[in-house]
Design a protein around this nucleic acid. Structure first.
Length: 272
DNA sequence: TATAGTGTTATCGG
DNA sequence: ACCGATAACACTAT
C-alpha cells in the first residue's frame, strides 16, 4: 500500500515505460475513481495524444500530454493518486507487465486486470492501468497539485518549520496534512516521530525549536531511507508496529492509540 | 467469522 | 478559523 516511496517507484515505471506512446483508447468508465469527470471526458481529452513527462509531489503524480502533430501542442495534465490500494502497471504489446515493485498485493498475478479501474491503451497494443481493488485511488485531469505542501523528500528546514507552525493540532495530524507537507503517510509519520522522540499527540504549539529540528531530521531521514530501500516496509520502526511490539531502541512495550484518526504506535518511555 | 487498515475528501458539530 | 469525528469507497489480511 503506497506511501511516498511506492509512488515514486510508480512514477519511474511510467517515466521509463509509458512516455512517448500514443494513446489509442481510454477506459475512464469508473465514475468513482475518475470523479468528478463524467465517463468519456478523460477519454476525449487524451485520445491521439501521448504522455510526455511525469512528475510527483508527495503521493500525487501527474503526466504532461502533448499532441502528436508537428507542434506537439501541450494538452491537459493527467493526474494519478494511488490511494490505499492502487498500483500502476504498464504492459507491452504482448501483455508483458512492469510495475513499481512487489510492495503489496502479493496474490495478484501479472496480467490480471480484474481490478483495473482506469486504462490507457496505446497504439502499439500495450497499456497503462491503475489496478486498485478498493477504488480509493483517483484519476483526473488537471489535478490541483498547487494545493499540496512541499514534497517531504526535498522540503527545506525553513519550509518544514513553517508547516509545523500555527494552530494546536496534534503534531502527527499535521504531518499527515498533505497541504502542509506532501508525502508523509501513517507509517512514515510514526517512523519520523519515533526517530525524533516526540509523542505523536503533542500539539504543534508545544513543540520547541529543537523538537522541530529533530522532527525535520526524522522526516528527511525516514523518507530518504524508504526511498533508498524500496518502500516503507523497510523502515526500522515498521516491524515493531504490531501487538506485543517493543521499542527497537529501549525495549519498552509500545503503546497504540488513535491520533489524527489513524492508528498510531509510539514508545511511551522515549517519546514525550 | 469479524475487524482493522500504509488515503483522501466532504461534511457536520463544537 | 480551527479541529475532531464520521462516512464513503470495497477489498485483503489477520
Amino acid at each position: 500500500m503506497p506511501e511516498l516511496p511506492e509512488v515514486e517507484s510508480a512514477r519511474q515505471v511510467i517515466d521509463r515505460y509509458a512516455l512517448g506512446r500514443v494513446i489509442a483508447e481510454v477506459d475512464d468508465s469508473d465514475t468513482y475513481v475518475c470523479r468528478p469527470h463524467t465517463p468519456g471526458e478523460i477519454r476525449s481529452a487524451l485520445l491521439g495524444r501521448r504522455l510526455s513527462a511525469v512528475h510527483r509531489r508527495g503521493k500525487s503524480m501527474w503526466c504532461e500530454t502533448t499532441g502528436v502533430g508537428r507542434t506537439r501542442k501541450p494538452g491537459p495534465l493527467l493526474g494519478f493518486h494511488l490511494g490505499m490500494s492502487g498500483k500502476i502497471v504498464v504492459a507491452d504489446r504482448r501483455g508483458s507487465e512492469v510495475d513499481g515493485g512487489d510492495y503489496w498485493e502479493r496474490g495478484r498475478k501479472p496480467g490480471d486486470l480484474r481490478f483495473a479501474r482506469f486504462r490507457l491503451t496505446f497504439a502499439d497494443g500495450g497499456h497503462l492501468a491503475l489496478i486498485d481493488p478498493r477504488r480509493l485511488g483517483r484519476v483526473r485531469l488537471d489535478p490541483p497539485v498547487e494545493k499540496l505542501g512541499p514534497d517531504a523528500a526535498v522540503v527545506t528546514r525553513p519550509e518544514f518549520q513553517s508547516a509545523m507552525s500555527r494552530g494546536t493540532i496534534a503534531v502527527k495530524a499535521r504531518l499527515l496534512d498533505q497541504e502542509a507537507l506532501a508525502g508523509v503517510g501513517n507509517l512514515l509519520a510514526d517512523q519520523a516521530l519515533w526517530a525524533a522522540r516526540i509523542r505523536p499527540s503533542r500539539p504543534v504549539d508545544e513543540l520547541t525549536p529543537d523538537d522541530v529540528d529533530r522532527l525535520y531530521d526524522g522526516v528527511r531521514e525516514s523518507v530518504a531511507d524508504s526511498l533508498a530501500d524500496g518502500g516503507v516496509h523497510t523502515l526500522s520502526f515498521f516491524p515493531a508496529r504490531r501487538a506485543g511490539g517493543v521499542c527497537p531502541r529501549c525495549g519498552a512495550a509500545l503503546q497504540v492509540g488513535v491520533v489524527g484518526t489513524r492508528t498510531t504506535w509510539w514508545c511511551p518511555v522515549e517519546q514525550v
